[in-house]
Design a protein around this nucleic acid. Structure first.
Lengths: 337, 337
DNA sequence: AAAAGACTTGCACGCGCGTGCAAAACTACC
DNA sequence: GGTAGTTTTGCACGCGCGTGCAAGTCTTTT
């Protein structure tokens, strides 16, 4: 047991002893750009391999003021697009030396507690990937000690102390709106997401504005109180119960794919409408499911990888830690509209 | 700047000074079961609130031998069920005091590097939620220093040094097979997942065995080399190209919902078959999408929450750190079979 | 009121490594 | 071979808190 203990905890000192150098040389051998001679490094690495040593990142974080840890706060797990973002972010962050703390803020009263928790782990940055983060949470976060950087991902933010990395929603929705108009649709209905957040999307506003500019009329809209497809299903189903066939919209423009898929199912299975023959539909995000031969959703793909790379730049300090980084995505035209 | 620095880094000593107690009393105030008087705790917490102090979890981890951190290793992000598991696990772990390190092992040659990385953060446990972890990775993990517990989630493992928390696949597949038989299907085709892992599912074996026991014949099967629905789509599409209508299976039993949905789309959109009229289909996992009016998938729901609670027990040391914890799930019968 | 018991508080030492600088070793050049 | 320049190495101190025990304080009992 005592030997086990000693075996368990191989420290830089042990490696130093074996390699015949000082502890500091050992740790230098593990840093990419450290001033150390090639042969010293070689000797150290061999000794380390023999002993099964790897630097303790925890101790390193404590001693320095960076942890190479990023907290990802997520408050909506009903959208498969989140899984795509998580995959991209974790992969790209890891490639660049950052590990990821995944924080589920569903249960947390507001995000503040989660943010505090992240700061207690000394994360280098907290990244908000969600819909329900409000001003209060952002302010608390900014007030929190040790929370060096606060980044809102895939969403704009009006808080001056945050960076927002997102796709250019204005450009995107304008392009999508123009596509819808070009296809000759006349009576759109916008299906928005929850509208309470300060950090939110401008998709609805952009669509309404653009449509009015070009067509002169103001489209109506409905607002599920969450991005859950089931809610969208129910809401759309109810909405169409109260509409005479002649007044029916000829296209549903949805704030994201998650809502669009719920709406799709409601139209098709609750009201027997064929898409796009009886009614058309668009989404946003290009989730994997949107491409299935079932939905064939016309949608808009955000450049998640580029956005993740941008996040890395910010973490590295090569981009300013406040402001708005906008990216241009790509309209994906499929059969649904 | 100097004052900023001083403000940034509120330590237990500062709180102690303000509250007129020692540093140790301050930290005790933040532990649930610490011997501290009610009034001392109150005084400390007030002082802490005034200063914006919260204990540094990093320093605590270094000083003690636990980090309250769990690494979740995921190697397949194409299955929406992963999102469900992530949501449940992160929420339940957090409720019990553990934070979650999400590690994407898609890019990692084998999982060993990821496991090593996790151990460098001194995680209390590494949880494998994936399909592609092989023996080598598990052995490496066990060899790694500081990796206290290795847990295979939602999958059995034959490695003696791991705990496996999963639903009772044998029971589940037997129940599902019996359902399929009771419905009168005669010519099943099993669509399996990749078969190379040591830590894998016994679904195929169980199905084949049970079917043979009851019906006396041995069903055929096909094997996509990944759980990606697109692969399943392609494989099923190809497979049915080479089958005469009379030889067609009357039911596809799929290893999980992800595969089932790909297969569903292939049958319906590539071959124009109606489900369940022309051919039936079952899945496994009960992903949210399986319930949609589109798929209406007959499937099997794993008790993820109970499994996550079991994980907590293991982390707390109230369950043995090796062996197999099996849970009984629930057959979900919908229209697809 | 004194003694025994129960609870609360303080403290020395260590967790493993980073920082910044000074000493040492090496290299190049005349 | 000596000097200046360059690279490499070693080290004191600190990061913020946990552990286990000893000293201190308060409560109970006879």
């Amino acid at each position: 047991m005592a030997t086990d203990k000693a075996l368990d905890t191989v420290t830089a000192d042990d490696v130093a002893a074996l390699a015949g150098v000082s502890r500091w040389t050992v740790n230098r051998a593990f840093k990419k750009e450290a001033s150390i001679s090639a042969k010293a490094r070689k000797r150290v690495l061999e000794a380390a391999a023999a002993l099964g040593y790897a630097p303790d990142l925890l101790a390193a974080s404590l001693a320095s003021d960076r942890s190479n840890l990023v907290a990802l706060l997520v408050d909506d797990f009903s959208n498969p697009h989140k899984l795509v973002m998580l995959e991209r972010l974790t992969r790209i962050l890891r490639k660049n030396g950052w590990d990821t703390l995944l924080v589920n803020t569903l249960d947390t009263e507001d995000a503040s507690a989660a943010l505090l928790n992240a700061s207690q782990r000394r994360v280098d940055a907290a990244v908000l990937i969600g819909s329900g983060f409000d001003d209060k949470a952002l302010e608390t976060a900014h007030g929190a000690r040790r929370l060096k950087k606060l980044i809102v991902f895939a969403r704009t933010s009006e808080n001056a102390n945050t960076v927002s990395i997102c796709c250019d929603d204005h450009l995107a929705m304008t392009e999508l709106t123009d596509h819808v108009i070009a296809r000759g649709y006349q009576r759109p209905l916008f299906v928005a997401g929850p509208q309470t957040q300060s950090a939110h999307l401008m998709r609805k506003e952009t669509f309404l504005k653009r449509w009015q500019e070009v067509k002169g009329s103001k489209p109506s809209f409905i607002t599920p109180n969450s991005y859950d497809p089931d809610r969208a299903f129910t809401l759309v189903k109810e909405h169409f119960n109260h509409i005479a066939p002649d007044d029916r919209p000829d296209i549903l423009v949805c704030e994201n794919d998650s809502i669009a898929m719920g709406a799709y199912d409601a139209l098709r299975y609750a009201h027997g409408l064929r898409i796009p023959d009886d009614i058309a539909l668009t989404g946003f995000d290009d989730t994997p499911q949107a491409a299935s031969p079932h939905y064939r959703l016309t949608t808009y793909r955000q450049p998640i990888s580029a956005m993740a790379e941008d996040l890395v730049q910010i973490l590295k300090g090569e981009s300013p830690p406040a402001g708005l980084d906008r990216f241009t995505g790509q309209l994906i035209i499929r059969e649904s509209a």
